[in-house]
Design a protein around this nucleic acid. Sequence first.
DNA 1: TAGATTGTTAATCGATTAACAATC
DNA 2: TAGATTGTTAATCGATTAACAATC
Lengths: 214, 214
Amino acid sequence: MVKMKVSYAPSVRRLPSYLLIAKQARETGDEYISGTIIAQELNLEPIQVRKDLAITGISGKPKRGYPVEPLIHAIEAYLNWDKRVDAIVVGTGNLGSALMGFPGFRQHGLHFIAAFDVDPAKTGADKFDAPVYPMSELDDRVREMGILVAVLTVPFANAQESADRLVAAGIKAIWNFTNAKLKTPDDIVVQNEDLSSGYAMLSMKCRIRRERLA
Amino acid sequence: MVKMKVSYAPSVRRLPSYLLIAKQARETGDEYISGTIIAQELNLEPIQVRKDLAITGISGKPKRGYPVEPLIHAIEAYLNWDKRVDAIVVGTGNLGSALMGFPGFRQHGLHFIAAFDVDPAKTGADKFDAPVYPMSELDDRVREMGILVAVLTVPFANAQESADRLVAAGIKAIWNFTNAKLKTPDDIVVQNEDLSSGYAMLSMKCRIRRERLA
DNA sequence: TAGATTGTTAATCGATTAACAATC
DNA sequence: TAGATTGTTAATCGATTAACAATC
């Protein structure tokens, strides 16, 4: 796994929200949008929005704010979301299907061009316009299509084994939605999504609320 | 929305991983597990694991580590995961279904006892043993069952409207999987999950990897 | 012009890491 | 006992926030 000191991680995580608001402003026909407004919309401090946007290289106009169209392009360019990226989904259960059908990713340049599943009942027919192949074809298909990015939504027990196969097939980045802590070579990018950690936060907030009321 | 200075947020987010490893150690029959081992397993620093576990109140034995069973209970108690919590799911698309079917939550005490959908085709039959009701029944059902927690997995456009209905029905905590920045009263707990921010991180890591190779 | 907003530089805050004595 | 590990106290690091001059 790439040992990453991704600096700016908290800022990077906020950029998609800024992007969404900028796009809404574009819909409205606004030519400029200020950090103050964005902050208001997201319940953040204006200085934080300005600091975050600075890393994308966008520059604003005093009194007006940031030019909407260049702002959108600056964020997209910074995240590499202005280029098409092809990816596969491994495991077409409800979570895998949900991700394939989520329209937001397509807007960010992410195209799911194929999916894989061990269950023969799930292969054959397309899913959200992408073919679903049996796992046995993974290696060949990935190589042939030259895919570099995979979304992993298989059961916990199969996660490591699937990751191994992905790496062997030439995948360079794995978006891991399983709880498994994948063991992968140093040059493979892994992004772990942990739904339980979100629930831990919700639980904590509920506890704090209870204690405040008590 | 509860304006929370949840301190320890990064630590809280790591606790579920520690819990998983502790449970695996229990399966293995280990009586103790050291912070060093946990850290190794998760690619963290041992000191970070010790600091994180300290907030749960668990205390370890020099040379042995933490007693597995008490460790599990300490984490679960700290997160309130040792008590049953009933919740509903609003929006039974792929994402809502995925969450309902994810076995991890049940282990954390979270029970989805009903779901709601606007689409008449989706209501009537059970989903993962929980009845799916039409949205029109939301208010009555929530009140009657005394539910306090809701998972929101409706389309972006319907998010605010659904949240308003949830609040009106007496829901006190919303786990929000939509991109919408919900406007809710001060005493409502909201936990936002933003899939795009995870993808932003993946994109950044890929960029860094490319730059390292170039 | 007046004043809102940017962007820079400095201060604060909180999280991570280091050092090390205590201890089993 | 010897030595690995905990838990505490201090140091470092990075992110957030504050202050304010520049500017349109």
